[in-house]
Write a protein that binds this DNA or RNA. Structure first.
Lengths: 138, 138
DNA sequence: GTAATCCTTGACGTCGGCGTCAAGGCAAGG
DNA sequence: CCTTGCCTTGACGCCGACGTCAAGGATTAC
């Protein structure tokens, strides 16, 4: 199979495949005319790469999985190096999620406070019932 | 005050200040010799920018806050446009956090499964008690 | 034969927020 | 006068994962 068919079957592009090859991640055999040639095993390697990419793994992080498959293991995560990547990714995710939740809380608090202050000074708000200013707005 | 002092007082760099100016976010007056000149109000604008940047806001998202301060409002988030930015950021954060949590769950499940499978075939695991293979490993 | 569709390599563009030179001007202290 | 330290503009570098274009060779369809 040539590069176009492989790309289509994996739901990616030829450009991505050439990029992977340039990174040494997915080398290709060559036909006599110079065309890249792939087989079903390459498709499996590529699917492993795509799956991890979709999960947000960097390309380099997919390398242990690909190497593991190429070494003949049944799954890309059958090797210790792959499990290490999983674990590092988990701690990265936990750290990132924690930070984002902190930010979310802070931004939410700022919004609530700002909305309150806006409501306290604008006429469409929750009617502050302040006799001193009521006379001015009516 | 000149650019170096402002940068230091705001905990940023001169390069960042020139960048903000190039984006029209924080224009500077000029002294006779061409040096950029700033005052305390500029420091407040800059602090608003830095705070939002630290929260993960893009530069363009800080613009409404800066404009709001420059219009004479007491806080950068005293204007409706700023509140809209808050709200959009909140929904962005919620979406992102949700995605990351989904990924975290999936990766965690993959790790657990892969660790189990590794333990089932490797000798250091939880001793599967399989008579057929036990004889081979001992 | 020739048009359409594949394939090749090479190289520059993208996005954000600056970092990092390079080459030179201006001001102050010794 | 000379050095030191601030300032100026301009321009390229960076990171990641490709997109996009260019110029040309190979193959297939008609």
């Amino acid at each position: 199979m040539r590069i176009g068919e492989l790309a289509e079957r994996a739901g990616t592009t030829t450009r991505a495949l050439r990029y992977y090859e340039s990174r040494g991640l997915l080398p290709a055999r060559r036909a006599v005319n110079g065309y890249r040639t792939y087989d079903e095993d390459d498709l499996r390697l590529l699917q492993q790469i795509r799956t991890l990419q979709d999960f947000g793994f960097g390309l380099e992080e997919t390398r242990p999985f690909v190497d593991c498959l190429r070494a003949g293991h049944p799954a890309g995560d059958s090797c210790p190096a792959s499990l290490d990547v999983y674990r590092r990714k988990l701690s990265e995710l936990d750290a990132l999620i924690g930070q984002l939740q902190t930010v979310r809380t802070q931004v939410g608090a700022q919004l609530a406070r700002a909305e309150l202050e806006a409501g306290a000074t604008l006429p469409g708000g929750p009617e502050p019932r302040c006799e001193l200013t009521d006379g001015l707005t009516e």
